[in-house]
Design a protein around this nucleic acid. Structure first.
Lengths: 196, 196
DNA sequence: TGCCTATGTATACGAATGTAGACTTTATCG
DNA sequence: CGATAAAGTCTACATTCGTATACATAGGCA
């Protein structure tokens, strides 16, 4: 008997409902991707009907766009601390720590990659990455080929996330965090310091 | 007017037909992912009917497994040359060169990532990566944390591929290959050399 | 030459998807 | 308190998907 799915009776409140749908969608997209997550499933997770989702967001595609935008909005890697004094270890710790137990903050990457099959989803993701993460990081880095180095850093973060969360490659997923940090920190540091 | 789709009249030949389906499936999965690529579409690309696909491979899932297995089978990165004398520049050049113009050899990664929404697809991919790539590379590397370092190398390759091919991040996709090599080579070299 | 089997096709079905349109319920305010 | 618009639901529909069943056709071997 299927009791109510995470729907703690929210007395008619548009803003709260909207937020609940957004949260449910985010976790659903992170787990199953754009195609894999159904509107009915997302709605159930928010304790509403499928049609309400479309009523609030117009369509599944627009909902996804908003999820990606909201998810990519928070800096995650590019924290204020990092901008002040960028170090490889900071990125490494953040990446390893976050992508391990507490995966929520970085599931923006999961949303992206799980959904990149959809052409439109990939487009939305690209715009967000470029606008928010890469440019900010590039200007925080400075030096020769700053944009390219920033992009490579993002690519590495992405790759580690993909391998740990999506593919669940055991060596990475179960690795000793400190060992991973020891491996990754110098890599990021080299990219921060610049070429040669 | 839709003329024949890449079906140059193959007179009843089981082996050839099977290969044609496999090739069509590979490119379809690389482009659209497991969920995105339909059996009918794959069949059309091979000039056959949808049912023949299932006749040869049992089901879409088994077809995908075979595609992934076949695609991951060729070394791509872990060439004989590399095993003999692993250098960061070798990986970098291979990654940059391959993932640029001639993308066929590395589309195994695309197949994987575009398809990782599907739990089963991710499982298949993981097994292939682990069995073929990671173990071989780890033993080629040697030293402390060889498995982890190998996994990180694979993750970086994956990340760059993802950002260039899937997300099509302009900075990476349109970057000067030599500049990318200059950035990536030391990164890989450090991972090859080992920690500290 | 004639048949038998491998090779391939046509039709169809059941399930799941996104979403459109009409309907119902609740909160709010004069 | 009662009307009104917002908030939410129900039913239904057109597609698309994977694939099961039944049928057609060609090729190799006697």
């Amino acid at each position: 008997m299927p009791i109510d799915d995470a729907a703690p009776a929210r007395s008619r409140n548009a803003a709260a409902t909207r937020a609940a749908i957004l949260a449910s969608a985010r976790s659903a997209f992170a787990r199953a991707g754009y195609d894999g997550a159904g509107v009915r499933e997302i709605a159930a997770g928010a304790g509403v009907t499928a049609m309400l989702v479309n009523r609030y967001f117009g369509s599944k595609e627009q909902l996804f766009a908003e999820v990606v935008a909201a998810t990519m909005a928070d800096p995650v890697i590019l924290t204020d601390d990092f901008v002040r004094a960028p170090t490889g270890e900071a990125i490494a710790r953040r990446l390893v720590g976050l992508s391990g137990a507490d995966q929520t903050p970085l599931d923006g990457f999961l949303v992206m990659f799980h959904s990149a099959s959809s052409r439109r989803a990939a487009e939305i993701s690209r715009e967000q990455i470029e606008a928010i993460h890469q440019r900010a990081m590039a200007s925080a880095l400075g030096g020769d080929l700053a944009a390219e180095r920033a992009a490579v850093i993002l690519a590495i973060v992405a790759g580690v996330q993909v391998m740990r969360q999506m593919i669940a490659l055991p060596t990475l997923a179960n690795a000793d965090p400190e060992a991973l940090v020891a491996i990754l920190a110098p890599v990021f540091q080299a990219l921060i310091d610049g070429v040669r």
